[in-house]
């Protein structure tokens, strides 16, 4: 098991954003996380990535190591990388610099040699830049390398957020609604990019996504959250026929047949 989360909870005031959620993800798996708005999906990501601390009782193991309560940069340095729903790209930095920041943990020079500017630093900088240019080419942003990231279009920003997360060379990549707001054509393109990145770098993926078709088509297993609780987990086929899921998504009033038709797209 690559990621083992047990008993994660997080309250905001009286609201249980995530309550007692377990999440076990195998190496190489693609896991989908779905649930209605406000069901705690992003909060779960924030807990895993160390942005929030889980409440006492929660534990997290990654690659066999206990990483419960580590700060975000420590979690990142273990090989867990994520994107944000609101992207949070560094808009005043160039596209290439965004990736270089993500790649920082793989730099092989220290602060002192950086200050003096030794040839080894220049060589390492060249290596990093070349590698990140490769990655940019892979996600289709190479032409924009020196443009401030804030000037990219919405779709390009989504790609950049993905690229920055990939620049960390993670073992586990967590994507928070990577395709939100994209046109159907671009959703497919993005998905293709994600899958080819997975192939190329041997990633494990956790994807939060509202577009059910994406989840159903690509994920090995799907976890469903509602009101912060895990209400179902299984293969896409199992999830499609799960009553709880259907209710959670569309309320009790709708007929099951309508819902199934909807879920199948």
């Amino acid at each position: 098991m690559l990621l083992e989360v047990t008993g994660f909870s997080k309250h905001f005031g009286g609201l249980a954003a995530v309550s007692n959620v377990d999440l076990n993800v195998e190496e190489g798996e693609i896991r989908g996380i779905i649930g209605p708005n406000g069901s705690g999906k992003s909060t779960l990501f924030n807990l895993i990535s160390g942005v929030y601390r889980p409440e006492p009782g929660g534990t997290m193991y990654f690659d066999g190591e206990n990483v419960t309560n580590l700060p975000p940069h420590e979690i990142a340095s273990r090989g867990i990388s994520r994107t944000f729903q609101m992207l949070r790209i560094f808009s005043q930095m160039t596209v290439l610099e965004n990736l270089l920041v993500g790649h920082q943990r793989h730099t092989r020079y220290g602060i002192l040699s950086a200050i003096v500017g030794t040839p080894a630093v220049w060589a390492e900088e060249r290596r990093m830049r070349a590698e990140m240019m490769d990655l940019l080419a892979f996600i289709g942003l190479a032409d924009y390398a020196t443009m401030p990231a804030g000037e990219l279009s919405g779709g390009q920003r989504r790609l950049l957020a993905l690229g920055r997360a990939m620049a960390m060379r993670p073992k586990l990549l967590m994507l928070d609604e990577p395709a939100a707001g994209l046109s159907p054509l671009n959703v497919d393109k993005l998905l293709e990019t994600v899958l080819s990145l997975k192939e190329r770098f041997g990633l494990t993926l956790i994807i939060i996504e509202h577009i059910l078709k994406v989840v159903m088509d690509t994920c090995d297993l799907v976890t469903v959250l509602e009101h912060g609780e895990k209400i179902a987990e299984g293969t896409p086929a199992e999830i499609k026929d799960d009553h709880h899921v259907i209710e959670a998504y569309l309320g009790k009033e709708m007929k099951d047949a309508d819902v199934r038709a909807f879920l199948r797209g």
């Binding site: 160390g50 975000p72 940069h73 990142a76 944000f84 949070r88 790209i89 560094f90 993500g102 960390m168």
Partner: peptide, 14 residues
Amino acid sequence: KALREDPLAAAAAG
């Protein structure tokens, strides 16, 4: 520069 723009995103980037 990263921590100036967005400390949270910087931390998540390691």
